[in-house]
Amino acid sequence: MQPRPIGLKILDVVTIIVLAISAYLALFFAPTEKVMGEVQRVFYFHIGTAWVGLLGFVIAAIAGIAYLVSKNMLWDRFEVAAVEVSTVFFFITIVLGSIWARPAWNTWWTWDPRLTTAAITELIYIAYFMLRQGIEEPEKRARFGAVYTLLGGISAPITFMVIRLFRTIHPVVIGSANGTQEKMSMSGDMKIAFFFALFAFTVIFVDMIWHRLRLSALEEKVESLKLNASM
């Protein structure tokens, strides 16, 4: 394996710096929210991880289609990297949301459309890894993985639309807390922390994808050597 390219080294340093700045902005710079208190500071990282989580799942579905069309293993590596990194980030999103919900709604969990859809999406991508684990041939693994990310990527938005029909009792809870109400009460400093978190997590996401791509390349090399050795 080649040593880390200079671009990745720089990106690693930048990632750590932007994460530190984003944490500083979220924890100290942004004013304490009056209604929620300190826990509202979790919101910046919640949004940041949610954004890259969803971005990764979209990228994965696109990479899946690209793989099926081109049969180029590079797309498969992209798909795995995007799904894996996003699954980790999305897990953080769900738990951070839950931690925020406990003092806000007095419960860790509600079966609200967003929460439920997030949980189901996470399960789809966990199933994705179980599917891949059960297949030995790399080429078949890539094909099946691509088909499944495609199915998952399309069913998730429909799930959201369907569940919204069930939970008409409290659609405002999340909508007002994260959307209109929060936006109205979000001061200038809060906006800075908010947008910087989005930017910071995008950088972190790219950095992690890059590392994961290199890991996949290494995996492929070892796998092909093993196949050669066993023949």
Partner: peptide, 16 residues
């Protein structure tokens, strides 16, 4: 593996 793959993707059709 089938139910694990199928149920999360089939949730919209079942719920609808």
């Amino acid at each position: 593996l089938l139910p694990i793959l199928l149920f999360p993707v089939a949730i919209p059709v079942l719920l609808a």
